[in-house]
Design a protein around this nucleic acid. Structure first.
Length: 424
RNA sequence: GGAGAGAUGGCCGAGUUGGCUGAAGGCGCUCGCCUGCUAAGCGAGUAAGCGGUUUAAAGCUGCUUCGAGGGUUCGAAUCCCUCUCUCUCCGCCA
């Protein structure tokens, strides 16, 4: 959520910034309503002031044995007027809130302006695309051939966009989860969290999934509860409504969760394999930091995510998303894209974002910079550290052998009972 | 699922015959005093949000907020209704 005061004080600048998101006109109605709001607010506050002082006066008169009937009648009438104005005010404030909740974050000045991913900028590259002396297969062939991924039976259970992992496939998924969590907790200083996988609508509002992206999520029938689309939601919302001490910051937390996404509007995209699923596993990194450190922390968080790919020796590149491609809540996002021989291209495996105060304002997460200082919103960051299912796909494709077997990356072997290769 | 208790400021915790209570007291924190240093002690200060005033900040000032929403009343932390959550006991259960 943007700061209403900022919009009011500098509407041209905000409008200019939102143009980078290819949004126009969203502020016009806001300014009109905001003006109206202050108008009514002034009136109703005056009336309430009168009511307060008069009510005290009534008490005093009663004590002194005077008859307050006339004053009481007057205040009763004012009370009705207040009620009407309050209702009008509430109406306007609801409208203002809806507008604010639907405006995305402003891109940081370092973000390239552009409509979509065509304007993304490659920042750096690690490793070279894997070369094969034989025709490389895609993971949706490797997996079934090794009998470690079963798409047909998954479809029988749950329909499209689900996968059953079997044998060493399931073991590989579990190994990667543990490897990631161990690395981030022991080396990068994150605290491991195991959150609920269902959260309330307030949480979804807090991190920006609601109200705009309701159709992307799985909602429980008849309840104000959603399956988490990413651990970013529970991890960030753990601190919702809290006032933190400066000494508490920075907060680094990580969690493994399954992620559930309806994938509305992506029919026909990535229909094969485990790249785009309704349910996938992910280890997420979340930080709550002081405002002046957040962009520096974004670099560190991105590096933390990159390290897992380096240790797995998977070639990847880091891409800075353009303004149009950056997510709703984010001010600046780096995507990590891993090399996938099956696509002969890089595929997103992590997205690392600095949401600055956007989520903190929605979720009301503040801190006191110094004793006696005014409260300020923290800055929140999140990044995949990294997606598990896509890691499995990348391992299968990059580590495949001519005989159809798959070498287990060295760092995963301790998690795989020492096994060096997955064979049929 | 049944019975009961509760939800107050950064934290703990008073306050329910409705009215100088935005809220006693304590902890924590800040400043000052004291002290060779530390601790202890003494004194003062210390909620947030939204408006107005102001070039801006500070200050001053109004309104709102005692889990959420509604109601009664001239006036509600205090009375009534609905909901949410927490705790205790019973039942069921991985």
């Amino acid at each position: 959520m943007l700061d209403a005061k900022l919009i009011r004080a500098n509407p041209e600048k905000v409008a200019e910034d939102l143009k980078k998101r290819y949004l126009t006109g969203v502020l016009d109605n806001f300014l009109v309503l905001d003006e109206k709001r202050r108008n009514i607010l002034g009136k109703v506050e005056d009336l309430k002031g009168f009511r307060n002082s008069s009510s005290q006066e009534v008490g005093k008169m009663k004590k002194e044995g005077k008859d307050p009937a006339e004053l009481m009648e007057k205040v009763r009438q004012v009370g009705q007027e207040i009620k009407d104005l309050d209702e009008e005010l509430k109406n306007i404030e609801n409208q203002l809130e809806q507008i604010l909740l639907n405006i995305p974050n402003i891109p940081h000045e370092s973000v390239p302006v552009g409509e979509d991913d065509k304007s993304n900028v490659e920042i750096r590259k690690w490793g070279e695309p894997t070369q094969f002396s034989f025709p490389a297969k895609a993971h949706w062939d490797i997996g079934p051939d090794l009998d470690i991924l079963d798409f047909e039976r998954a479809a029988k259970l749950s329909g499209a966009r689900f996968t059953v992992y079997k044998g060493m496939g399931a073991r590989l998924e579990r190994a990667i989860i543990n490897f990631y969590l161990d690395l981030h907790t022991s080396k990068h200083g994150y605290k491991e969290i195991l959150p609920p996988f269902m959260v309330t609508g307030d949480c979804m509002l807090g991190t920006g999934q609601l109200p705009k992206f309701a159709e992307d999520m799985f909602k429980l029938q008849g309840r104000d509860m959603y399956l988490v689309p990413t651990a970013e939601v529970p991890l960030t919302n753990m601190y919702r409504g809290e006032i933190l001490e400066a000494a508490d910051l920075p907060i680094y937390v990580t969690a493994y969760t399954p992620c559930f996404r309806a994938e509305a509007g992506s029919h026909g995209r990535d229909t094969r394999g485990i790249i785009r699923q309704h349910q996938f596993n992910k280890v997420e990194l979340v930080k709550l930091v002081e405002p002046d450190k957040s962009f520096e922390e974004l670099e560190k968080l991105t590096a933390d995510a990159e390290e897992v790919l380096q240790m797995l020796e998977l070639p990847y590149r880091v891409v800075l998303l353009s303004s149009g491609d950056t997510g709703f809540s984010s001010a600046k996002t780096y995507d990590l894209e891993v090399w996938m021989p099956g696509y002969n291209d890089y595929k997103e495996i992590s997205s690392c974002s600095n949401c600055v105060d956007f989520q903190a304002r929605r979720a009301n997460i503040r801190y006191r910079p110094a004793p006696k200082a005014k409260l300020q919103y923290v800055h929140t960051l999140n990044g995949s550290g990294v997606a598990i299912g896509r890691t499995v796909a990348a391992v299968l494709e990059n580590y495949q052998q001519e005989d159809g077997s798959v070498i287990v990356p060295e760092v995963l072997r301790p998690y795989m009972g020492g096994q060096r290769v997955i064979t049929k």
